[in-house]
Design a protein around this nucleic acid. Sequence first.
DNA 1: TTACAAACCGACTGATTAGTCAATCTTCTT
DNA 2: AAGAAGATTGACTAATCAGTCGGTTTGTAA
Lengths: 185, 185
Amino acid sequence: MDKRTKLMHTAKRLFSENGFYGTATARIAKEAGVSNGILFHYFPTKDDLIKAMYFDIKDRIFQYSLGQVYKGATLKESIYTLWLAAVEWNLENPEDFDFMLQFENSPYYSVEIEKSHKYVQMSVELAEKGIEQQVFKHLTPLLLFQMMSSLVDTTVKFLRINPELQSDNEYKSRLFEIAWDAIKK
Amino acid sequence: MDKRTKLMHTAKRLFSENGFYGTATARIAKEAGVSNGILFHYFPTKDDLIKAMYFDIKDRIFQYSLGQVYKGATLKESIYTLWLAAVEWNLENPEDFDFMLQFENSPYYSVEIEKSHKYVQMSVELAEKGIEQQVFKHLTPLLLFQMMSSLVDTTVKFLRINPELQSDNEYKSRLFEIAWDAIKK
DNA sequence: TTACAAACCGACTGATTAGTCAATCTTCTT
DNA sequence: AAGAAGATTGACTAATCAGTCGGTTTGTAA
């Protein structure tokens, strides 16, 4: 693993444990086993590091989730696949999940950043399709996507403190019904 | 306004603009027009200040929302009243809203803190009633409450970037349907 | 072999930070 | 009026911070 990646891994862990505020750049470098200088070689400022991490994580989770969707699937099947993939990915990557939540609810974040993501655009297109087909509620596609995302987050938080339910597929599909009912017509 | 309150007001604004990380205690005191020392007289540490603000804001929003609910109201009416009150309160107090989001998604936060709130307990009791009456989905009451809360947050975020919809009551009741459908059986 | 760039190091710094403290002022009780 | 208790001040500090820099190593391509 190259030093840039090592830095991002360590930073992710420290940020999710102690927050942006509680994590010194020197500590990131030290625990990553690299020099202080190299951190600023790859990321000119601490903010640059934080933003780079955001785009990196966001990319990976979307790539994973969207990759699971079959081409011939119905709309509900596709949405369920996406929902489940996102939930499971976040459960398996708790540090990424914590980092994302912190970032998206910090002053770093804006809707422009969100919309700039090509994968968000793809998800919005899926929402558009659902609205056209009269399956989803007739509301702004971006809003439906955001509602879905926040329900995924809440589901993940819940399953985290109830780990015994994580492997219960029947229960998970009942949790999915919450999200589905929220957006369906 | 006493100095303690003045400090909390200023801190709220600065935290919501620049985050916990980006706000120095000295600056809070200065912009509040009080001495540096008095901040630490009322709040022994910066974290104490942050936590005190959280409980203060949370108290006020719940007191406001729960106070709106009529005794004779049906369950759906009660939930709508709560939903609407929360949405409007957050829209009118954007700094409180930003502060809360930041806090609840930071390492400061835990489920224990949430559950310790007497008002959260009251809301959970309402959810229990809905489940008993077979109106809500048969799931943990706390989960239904959290789902509701996160949909309120997403609604507020959406109305914030679409201010022209904020006074459209018909539209708002359509937004409520998202939250209602999510939890109803 | 040379030569050049990118990767890498870690000691260093100037600015900033949370928190302290000794002294003064205000308010209230007796 | 005395005097105790809390409120208030702002200069101060020790620690910590993000970011710099002069120099070294490593990879690579001609």
